[in-house]
Design a protein around this nucleic acid. Structure first.
Length: 252
DNA sequence: GCATTAACCACCG
DNA sequence: CGGTGGTTAATGC
């Protein structure tokens, strides 16, 4: 597997308060009233994590509700020694862990940084407090849960796909989710190596798949990222198939 | 066959 | 320079 290096000090001790610009970029924050914003501003922490670092670990008691300000994270639900089950990329703008925070349980997945990232978090107490008083916040969380449910169903589907090009297309479609990841825009900053790691393919194979998708006009391959030209096309993308096996007795 | 790793070089920031 | 992309060759299932 990947090098899981755990940088010495716990995340909380390296964290700082959020800047005004960072706050303004948080989708649910801007929906809050003045008093709620005050509390969030006082509670919210921001920390820089290095590649390979783990943001939350399976089995650890819940501490924060997390959001990604910048960078790229990978979520996987793997049992301690078993094979990884599901990988999901977390692009900027994504907030995660609400299921765990709601139930005050232990985290059910690992979230690991694929590259240097800026991660924000609010405490469970503040999360609960917001849930008790802000309709807008409730709406955001409910929407988040609903969308993520769809994500995981899609992930299962992707896992079953054997065709590499299809896997890349669907994974990109998921990463460009406008509701879950409003920070992404039309250009996703991700290297082909990282994409390969998420999709479960080699960099070379991802490179080939990306160019095939580009040739179909669905995306544009750019330096250090991918621009989506046709999101619906990616979602419903089917490989130009030589599907129909020749009917029995077809002349040749 | 097809995908993977390793290696190389060119280019970008 | 390091990081990233495009490519080829050797190897493995």
């Amino acid at each position: 597997m990947e090098p899981v290096h755990d940088r010495g000090r716990p995340l909380v001790s390296r964290s700082r308060a959020a800047t005004a610009a960072e706050l303004a970029g948080i989708p649910w924050y801007t929906q809050l009233d003045a008093q709620e914003r005050d509390r969030v501003r006082a509670d919210l922490r921001v920390v820089r994590v290095e590649p390979g670092e783990i943001v939350c670990r399976v089995g650890r008691p819940v501490t924060y509700w997390f959001g990604l300000i910048d960078g790229l994270l990978k979520m996987s639900n793997d049992s301690a020694e078993g094979l990884p089950i599901t990988f999901t990329g977390l692009p900027p703008g994504g907030w995660f862990g609400e299921g765990t925070v709601l139930k005050h349980e232990a985290y059910r997945y690992n979230v690991q940084a694929l590259r240097r990232s800026l991660v924000a978090g609010i405490t469970v107490a503040t999360f609960d407090w917001l849930l008790d008083r802000s309709i807008a916040f409730n709406r955001f969380v409910m929407n988040q849960l609903n969308e993520r449910l769809g994500q995981f169903i899609a992930a299962r589907e992707i896992d079953r796909l054997s065709d590499p090009e299809l896997r890349v297309a669907r994974s990109l479609g998921a990463l460009f989710h406008p509701v879950l990841y409003p920070g992404v825009g039309s250009l996703l900053h991700i290297t082909q190596h990282e994409l390969g790691y998420l999709v479960g393919l080699s960099r070379q194979r991802v490179n080939a798949a990306l160019h095939a998708l580009q040739a179909e006009g669905l995306i544009r391959v750019e330096y250090g990222g991918v621009r989506v030209l046709d999101l619906d096309g990616l979602r419903g993308h089917t490989v130009p198939r030589l599907t129909a096996p020749p009917p029995q007795g077809a002349s040749r």
